[in-house]
Design a binder for these strands. Structure first.
Length: 464
RNA sequence: GGCGCCGUAGCCAAGUGGUAAGGCAGAGGUCUGCAAAACCUCCAUCGGCGGUUCGAAUCCGCCCGGCGCCUCCA
């Protein structure tokens, strides 16, 4: 599986993470089903944009690329995108790119011109098949800049001759750098072979990038390139596409990660089908976070009842190891429905809905069996097995990998013991039926962001 | 102008031929000393108009509205 990664000239915005999270989930699911998946995401670290930006910043292309790549990797890690097997860089594959370019010239699909090398789209009758475009009509669009060194306006550069001061590598056509599309063909071919199963990327890459990848790859190898093309919908902000070339729309991923839980952000991308556009509007993330509370409520409940942490649970990693049946009503069926949704073109939105139903089924079971007050080992074990199913399915979506980070500093040594102490005192007050004082304590704590929950088996506190 | 996508409750969203998942918000209820949490119940006929069909949100046509690509873009 090959997914187009970023051109690293400026830090990642939210939109850049849609694809990685979606394809991370797709890989998780394929692995869950028992497939072996090798996932490649490229880093394009040389290109006109980088040259311009580096000059603006007064730095080198190399430094800029490294800095932006680091930001990208940090975002991936924060979001739990950990299934990428290879991240090849264009600058480390110049030899392959040159060889492929030469091969295309030898086969008559490309021609050198003025220090550049262009792919000749008229030599590939199938050009346009991916994006349903007719090369002749591309001319009619007239938005392609005319160039005297190109034979056909639709021809695209495989190799660009360099001007003095620009990053350059030696080649049979003089010093230069790769064109934009060739690195993906060269690197996917090197790592995955001439033909592979899945190629992904944003919807905005269909043309010209993927179209060009297909022609140059198939012209070179004579074999079909990717079997399946998956294009994820784009992120919009108030209806407008988020794009680096439209600075008003850019929302930096790094900024969002400061304020929001990674699970919330994953849900933003997974709550709807991957092909649909996702609109990022005000309050959207808060809304999702409120919804996620139900899960955390169940995790807390599970921990109170069993002493085990949901996050430490060991759940089946493969479908074959999971259990289809459950002593708890609906659990087996909900698991089936979750998997059916995923089987249907990775319908994460539908699958996500089943997860909520599963939470409700588990709470319903815990309520009806009075798990808080009874000590029936059988019921507790059944509850636990149901929670394991929840964990099994959550893992597929890459959710709830870690306990939620508290927004405050509850981790300090004093807060928890002090709150415990207050709760103890309040419990005594309540026993004495001094509800006015007990309610005062609860109200004051609420103002500090501490919520108290009185249960049959005691009182617990939680921080917002 | 060409290619393509979308329009489901106040908001987000699944469903693509058999009488509408789920989430947020809202209303009522159970539990509770009161709350919180949890659970239960309620809240849409699917942009509009025609057509096909025993039957359509789901298929076809037209119209209205929004968006993307055709130029760098995840």
């Amino acid at each position: 599986m090959y997914v187009c990664g970023p051109t690293v000239y400026s830090n990642s915005h939210v939109g850049h993470m849609v694809g990685p999270v979606i394809f991370d989930t797709i890989k998780r699911y394929l692995v869950y089903l028992g497939y072996e998946v090798t996932w490649v995401v490229n880093i394009t670290d040389v290109d006109d944009k980088l040259i311009v930006q580096a000059q603006k910043d007064g730095t080198t292309v190399k430094d800029l690329a490294e800095r932006v790549t680091d930001d990208y990797l940090r975002c991936l890690e924060a979001l739990g995108v950990d299934g990428i097997d290879h991240m090849p860089k264009a600058t480390e594959h110049i030899a392959e790119i040159v060889a492929m370019t030469q091969g295309l010239i030898d086969k008559g699909f490309a021609y050198p011109s003025g220090g550049d090398v262009y792919f000749d789209v008229t030599r590939a009758p199938e050009y346009g098949k991916l994006s349903h475009r007719d090369p002749e009509e591309l001319q009619a669009g007239a938005r392609i800049e005319p160039s005297s060194i190109k034979r056909h306006p639709g021809d695209f550069a495989l190799w660009k001759g360099s001007k003095p001061g620009e990053p350059a590598w030696e080649s049979p056509w003089g010093p230069g750098r790769p064109g934009w599309h060739i690195e993906c063909s060269a690197m996917s071919m090197k790592i995955l072979g001439e033909h592979f199963d899945i190629h992904g990327g944003g919807l905005d890459l269909v043309f010209p990038h993927h179209e060009n990848e297909v022609v140059q790859s198939e012209s070179f190898s004579g074999k079909p390139f990717a079997t399946y093309w998956l294009h994820n919908g784009l992120l919009t902000k108030s209806g407008k596409k988020i794009s680096k070339s439209d600075p008003g729309t850019v929302i930096l991923m790094g900024d969002l990660l400061q304020k929001h839980d990674p699970d919330t952000l994953r849900c933003l991308f997974l709550a709807s089908h991957y092909r649909r556009p996702i609109d990022y509007g005000p309050g959207r993330l808060d809304e999702l976070a409120r919804g996620l509370q139900a899960f955390h409520g169940l995790f807390d409940r599970f921990e109170r009842l069993t002493g085990e942490s949901f996050h430490a649970l060991d759940a089946p990693k493969h479908k074959a190891d999971g259990r289809a049946d459950s002593p708890i009503p609906d659990v087996g069926e909900l698991r089936d429905r979750f998997l059916e949704a995923m089987d249907d073109d990775f319908n994460t939105g539908g699958a996500f809905g089943e997860l909520y139903e599963l939470v409700r089924a588990l709470n319903r079971f815990a309520d009806s069996h009075k798990l808080e007050s009874a000590t029936d080992p059988g019921s507790l074990a059944a509850f636990r097995s149901g929670v394991v199913v929840l964990k099994e399915l959550s893992q597929i979506l890459g959710l709830f990998r870690h306990p939620r980070a508290r927004a405050d500093s509850a981790q300090d040594k004093l807060t928890a013991p002090l709150l415990d102490l207050l709760v103890q005192l309040r419990t005594r007050v309540r026993k004495e039926k001094n509800f006015a004082l007990a309610d005062d304590i609860r109200k004051s704590l609420a103002e500090l962001g501490v919520t108290l929950e009185d249960r049959p088996d005691g009182t617990s506190w939680k921080l917002d």
